[in-house]
Amino acid sequence: MTRFQSTSPHRDESPIDLERIRQKFPNWFQRFLPSGGGSHEDHHGKGMFGFTVFLLSESIVFFSFFLTYAALRLNTPDWLPPGISGPEPTTFVMINTVILLSSSVVIQLAERALSRHHHSRFRGLWLLTSLMGTYFLIGQGIEWSNLNFGLRTGLVGATFYILTGFHGLHVVAGVILQVIMLLRSFDRNNYNHGHFGVSATTLFWHFVDIIWVILFSLLYLW
């Protein structure tokens, strides 16, 4: 009995003891894994579990777009219509990308500051993240207006604008979430008992960045 003792009330007689497997992983990773059963009061735990599940599901919408893009591109002999250069990885686009990707580091530092109850440091880093996100969105708008093709310019136009547009909507959602969390932080009591909203926004922001890396490789580098 003692050999299989675990902290969870769900000591499982089944061959798969999820809780025991889960506890073999480092702490930061454990919260993304299905627990052997959390308590009703663990809002952060159940919230992060549900949100991770949602993001995995959401990634499949993007995945279906990526597959559509790849299949169309591989099967179309003249991908670029005559006179169209297609999206190019210009310096402007590269700077935009670097800004978005490095904001992932900033938001992670912000979340860590909040965990250590450094509220003003958190607010500064958090505001910086949303400014970087806003910069990316404005840059994306400038990029859109400077391209020499539109939504209806063959398959290249349709896929480019739908993919970047759908990603852009997620960036907008992320920035809105960041603003909400920032406003909530001015009432100190909001984050006294955990900060699920901040952790979820951080995770969402990483998700948006990973999607951008794939999107950038497909649309600009291929």
Partner: peptide, 15 residues
């Protein structure tokens, strides 16, 4: 999914 993984009563193992 979250309910089934997190909200089982004590003793309500997966099996």
């Amino acid at each position: 999914l979250t309910t089934i993984v997190w909200f089982r009563a004590p003793g309500m193992t997966f099996f």
